[in-house]
């Protein structure tokens, strides 16, 4: 349903991602693990169109996204939660979510979004910048979900968030998958979080996939070896 074939991304002459082939099925949760600098964020940013891709194609439900701009990709059904959350800090919580409604043309925030994140409903009128890190992360997810994506990309969602909330986030993401039929691709460094929520674990190293296993078969030790510096 979401496929990358011979996908490549480069900064100028230096290739960061090379010949990547990946196929993610409907309602699947895939965790992409890898050390810093292995191309996780670059891959995520290029998938939403913030960085142009150099080679290969991305298709979503058979539609080629490679030449589309960011906002067109969102209309086509890609949702993005960036590293560091990047919420609009001077805008209120509800305004932040409303920016996500642009591509659907709706005016009102769907109530089921608030039921996923009750904290956001309580803080509707606060400015996004005054929320805690965990709350901002929820806001960033809610904003991405507002555009009704069929695939949701999350770039290191656990970064800078306290452990108890990380557990809760894994639960929420699984709930989102079943409630909204969303495919989720998450890039991670925290192994426990990935094992907790994903159906499938990928390890990326130097822009290539070096391991691709269902979570039941994932061997902690092998993966830890890949992740350790």
């Amino acid at each position: 349903m979401f496929e990358l074939s011979d996908y490549g991304v480069a900064y100028g002459q230096s290739d960061v991602i090379r010949d990547l082939n990946l196929s993610v099925g409907k309602n699947e949760i895939v965790a992409i693990l890898g050390r810093n600098g292995m191309g996780k964020t670059t891959l995520m940013k290029s998938l939403i169109g913030m960085i142009p891709s150099k080679a290969g194609t991305v298709t979503l439900n058979g539609k080629d996204l490679s030449d589309l701009k960011s906002h067109e990709r969102v209309s086509a059904g890609v949702g993005f939660v960036p590293q560091g959350r990047m919420i609009f800090s001077t805008m209120t919580v509800s305004e932040n979510i409303e920016t996500g409604l642009t591509s659907t043309g709706e005016k009102k925030i769907p109530t089921d979004l608030y039921s996923l994140f009750p904290v956001l409903d309580e803080m509707k009128h606060r400015r996004g910048g005054n929320l805690s890190g965990g709350q901002q992360q929820q806001l960033a997810i809610a904003r991405a979900l507002a555009s009704n994506p069929s695939v949701l990309l999350l770039d290191e969602p656990t970064e800078g968030i306290q452990p108890s909330i990380i557990k809760e986030m894994a639960r929420t993401l699984k709930q989102i998958r079943t409630q909204r039929n969303v495919t989720i691709i998450v890039s991670e460094q925290v192994l426990s979080f990935a094992l907790d929520m994903a159906d499938r674990i990928l390890v990326i190293e130097k822009g290539k996939i070096v391991l691709d296993v269902p979570v039941e078969e994932a061997d902690q030790q092998t993966i830890t070896k890949y992740l350790s510096v």
């Binding site: 939403i48 169109g49 913030m50 701009k69 960011s70 906002h71 969102v74 209309s75 993005f80 960036p82 990047m86 609009f88 800090s89 001077t90 805008m91 305004e95 409303e98 920016t99 996500g100 642009t102 591509s103 005016k107 904003r143 991405a144 507002a146 555009s147």
Partner: peptide
């Protein structure tokens, strides 16, 4: 207004505004 909110989002973070679906 909707344009106003979109404008403020673009002012804050242009690439991110595009990534939530705003035609910047």
């Amino acid at each position: 207004s909707r344009l106003g909110k979109q404008t403020r989002a673009v002012v804050q973070n242009r690439p991110m505004a595009a990534a939530v679906g705003i035609n910047t």
